[in-house]
Simulated scan of single mutants.
Amino acid sequence: MVLAVCAVIATVLIVTRGGDEEASASQTPAGTTAQNGYGQSGTEGYGHSSDAGHGAAAEGSAAQGGQAERSGPQPVTEVDKTFLVAVRQAGLWEIPAGRLAQTNASSEAVKRAGLHLMDGHSKLDQLVREDAEILGVPIPDQATPEQQGWVKQMENARGAEFDRIFANLLRASHGKIFATIGEVRAASQNDLIRRHARQANQTVLDHLEVLEDTGLVDSATFAEVEEAVTPK
């Protein structure tokens, strides 16, 4: 009788343990998935992000392609051409003027301004020749007769007289073209012209400042520039 009872108890224990092990085994994948829900949702998230990224890239490429197809030769207006010619002619007389300042001037400030003119216009002259060739714009090989007359005037002057002539002639010239550069930069539809106008603007502004630093610019010169740039 005792043996029979023991056998029954043993059977119950075995069945109970088996049921617990099955329950534990069935819960393990669910528990793993729950803890790794960050893994599953993360995987799905990365999958969607990747697809979206490829889609955006494809759309971006298509948009860029469409833009490239739409962009044709950029216009070069008469104002653009006149601007390039003016920059070229400015260098053709202002570089020689800067050289004359090194030999004919008595003021160190004037000599310094001359060095700025030589450096700035040498760089602009290289740029204008490159851009004119690219855009097919003919540019002159010599300054205007008026500009050549200014150089001649400075060649015949020395000391304080040279300093005064140099400062006022160059300040008037730079002041007038400074206004033109702003108009070209604001209105030109051509990338090269806008880039050129930006560089010219920086160069001319520097020259205006070093010329004014000489302390020799007359009030009449400022009045001349004002009259020239004021819309009629």
Results as ranks from 00 to 15, higher is better:
Arg129Tyr: 06
Gln40Leu: 08
Thr82Ala: 15
Ala109Gly: 12
Ser107Glu: 03
Gly55Pro: 07
Ile95Thr: 03
Phe166Gln: 00
Gly39Pro: 05
Asp20Arg: 13
Ala105Gly: 08
Glu212Cys: 02
Ser106Gly: 09
Thr221Arg: 01
Ala57Leu: 15
Ile177Gln: 00
Leu92Ser: 03
Ala197Gln: 00
Glu44Trp: 10
Thr32Lys: 10
Lys123Tyr: 02
Val8Cys: 07
Ile165Gln: 08
Gly47Gln: 05
Ala97Phe: 04
Ser41Asn: 10
Glu21Arg: 15
Asn201Tyr: 01
Leu13Ile: 13
Asp131Phe: 06
Glu226Val: 10
Gly114Met: 01
Ala4Met: 08
Gly39Cys: 10
Phe222Arg: 08
Asn190Cys: 09
Thr28Pro: 00
Pro29Thr: 02
Val217Tyr: 00
Gln40Asn: 07
Gly149Leu: 07
Ala34Glu: 09
Asp51Trp: 10
Asp218Ala: 09
Asp191Leu: 15
Gln40Asp: 04
Ala25Thr: 06
Lys176Gly: 04
His48Ala: 13
Glu146Leu: 15
Ala97Gly: 11
Val87Pro: 02
Gln199Val: 08
Asp213Pro: 06
Val110Glu: 00
Gly65Ser: 15
Val184Phe: 05
Phe162Gly: 01
Thr203Gln: 04
Leu84Asp: 07
Phe222Ala: 04
Ser49Trp: 12
Gly37Glu: 04
Ala197Cys: 01
Cys6His: 09
Leu115Gly: 10
Arg198His: 02
Gly65Tyr: 09
Ile177Pro: 00
Glu155Asn: 08
Thr16Asp: 11
Asp20Tyr: 14
Glu209Lys: 14
Gly136Gln: 06
Gly182Arg: 12
Thr43Gly: 14
Thr33Val: 11
Thr221Trp: 05
Cys6Phe: 13
Asn36Met: 14
Asp218Tyr: 07
Ser188Lys: 01
Leu170Glu: 04
Ser173Gly: 11
Pro145Trp: 00
Ile9Asp: 04
Thr230Pro: 00
Val184Pro: 00
Ala23Gln: 07
Asp213Glu: 12
Thr43Lys: 06
Glu130Arg: 14
Val15Lys: 04
Val85Leu: 14
Glu146Lys: 14
Pro138Asp: 09
Ser122Val: 02
Asp131Ser: 06
Val5Asn: 05
Arg198Met: 06
His174Trp: 08
Val151Tyr: 01
Val137Ser: 07
Glu224Met: 08
Leu124Ala: 03
Lys176Cys: 09
Arg198Leu: 06
Pro138Arg: 08
Asn36Leu: 13
Thr28Met: 11
Gln153Ala: 12
Lys176Phe: 06
Val128Phe: 05
Gln126Thr: 15
Lys176His: 09
Gly37Tyr: 02
Ile95Ser: 00
Glu94His: 10
Ala200Thr: 05
Asn104Tyr: 03
Ala57Pro: 12
Arg195Asn: 12
Met154Gly: 04
Ala101Gln: 01
Leu216Lys: 02
Gln189Val: 07
Ala56Cys: 09
Gln142His: 14
Val128Pro: 02
Leu117Gln: 01
Val2Tyr: 11
Gln142Ile: 08
Thr16Phe: 11
Glu155Ser: 07
Leu117Asn: 02
Gly18Leu: 13
Val128Thr: 04
Ala113Trp: 00
Arg198Tyr: 00
Glu21His: 12
Glu155Cys: 06
Glu78Leu: 13
His48Gly: 06
Ala109Glu: 14
Pro231Ser: 01
Asn156Val: 06
Arg88Val: 10
Leu3Ala: 12
